[in-house]
Computed example of a mutant assay.
Amino acid sequence: MRPLLRAATLLLAAGPVLTGCVSSFMVPGPEETGSTAAPSPEPSSPAPSPTPFAGTVAMRDFSFEPADLTVRPGTVVTVTNTGTTPHTLTAQDGTFDTGPVAPGATATVTAPSQPGASSYLCAFHHFMRGTLTVS
């Protein structure tokens, strides 16, 4: 029992020394610096206003790529003719139309402001079809 008592006494004596060593490596807390207030939060900046996603469609080899595109209301869609013959991207309901786009040329259309789906085609090649979905 005597060795146990000696070990306990040694630990009690060394305790303050060890505590001082450990606390010198720790960051002081509010009780050590005298500060009791919680840190003030960073000022928040207003959320950025959403900008419409700029969609792109390629007219290539008598097809639209992608044929089906989903965008936000009012998005400007860039249409590029990468083929060898003129094409159009024309909404079947008449809401948008690039007009003829020559090979190598680019045109834009603006998506409708209301959500929904608009079927489109090439006015020269009616088998070229796609859907522009506004959501």
Rank of each mutant, 00 (worst) to 15 (best):
Y120M: 15
R129N: 13
G55W: 04
A37L: 11
A47I: 12
T9D: 04
Q114P: 04
G74N: 09
P30C: 01
A111D: 03
A105Y: 05
E42M: 10
P30T: 04
T70G: 01
A13Q: 01
S35D: 14
P28D: 14
H126I: 13
L5V: 14
V27N: 05
T78S: 11
P39D: 07
F127I: 07
T70H: 01
V101W: 01
T70P: 00
P16T: 01
P30G: 10
H87M: 12
F64L: 01
D93V: 08
G20D: 14
C122L: 08
F96K: 05
L10G: 00
A38R: 07
V27K: 08
L69F: 01
P16K: 02
S118A: 12
F96R: 11
V79P: 00
V79E: 07
S23K: 09
V57R: 00
H87S: 06
F124A: 14
G94Y: 04
T70Q: 03
V57F: 04
R2M: 03
E65A: 00
G99E: 11
G130Q: 08
A13G: 02
P50T: 13
A37W: 08
Q114L: 13
T36G: 07
A58G: 03
A123Q: 10
A54I: 15
G74Y: 07
F62W: 09
T36M: 11
P39L: 10
S35F: 09
T84H: 05
L12C: 03
P112K: 13
T36P: 05
G74V: 06
G20Q: 12
A117I: 12
L89D: 10
E42N: 05
L89S: 06
A54Q: 15
H125S: 12
D97R: 06
S24F: 14
S45P: 00
V79Y: 01
D97A: 10
